[in-house]
Amino acid sequence: MRAVLAVATMLLTLGPPPEVHSPASGGPDFESASFEVSTDPTDLVLFLTERGGLGNATAFQFLLYGDGRLVRERVDNSNLKVLQSEEVALTFDETSEILDHAVRSGLAEFTSERVREVVGHDQAISVDSSTVVLEMNFIRYERPGLSERAPYTATARLTNPRIYARAYPELTEASALRRLQELVANHFIASSRSESERGNR
């Protein structure tokens, strides 16, 4: 398995970093986190989906592999059967942008404990809403104050991040999760469009 070292400080292409709970605010220094992910085409690096919700029959799930392949699957929400699958190839920079955003915003360490810390409890604050699920697989992950974890699988789940972001702006991971969804979806759409244009020439 080949590996690529992605240092969080060298690949930022999003402009100013998102405001996260940072050392200045007494939180962990996610900006200085470093990580390695596999570049093996068969290794799943990131999985992102939004499941559940009243009457929500279908959902998208995104699977990002080590070689930059991004697969978008439309699944039946009741049995997770894949109804449709499409695939694009992301560039190294695009892949890094996605992973960088997730790591820098603290999503690689986001747990219900963090929700409890900010909100006072770890309950969902809305009923019938869908839940965003993020999983990331690292060969190695570390940051100041946190000893190296190798390998490391991170899982983050949050029901209705949009409402958390509105009600608890200090829970910066909520808006970061939403932004990650947009980032992944936008890269998929843009790559899909450019591949389609190339095919038409």
Binding site: L48, T49, E50, G52, G53, L54, G55, N56, T58, A59, F60, R74, G120, H121, Q123, I125, S126, V127, D128, S129, S130, V132, N160, R162, I163, R166, A167, R178, Q181, E182, V184, A185, N186
Partner: peptide, 20 residues
């Protein structure tokens, strides 16, 4: 509009924002 990048979203929801 409750839809987003993850799909169409739930058809409806009850928010207990800042409630307990």
């Amino acid at each position: 509009d409750l839809s987003g990048p993850g799909g169409p979203g739930p058809i409806a929801e009850c928010r207990l924002v800042r409630l307990d």
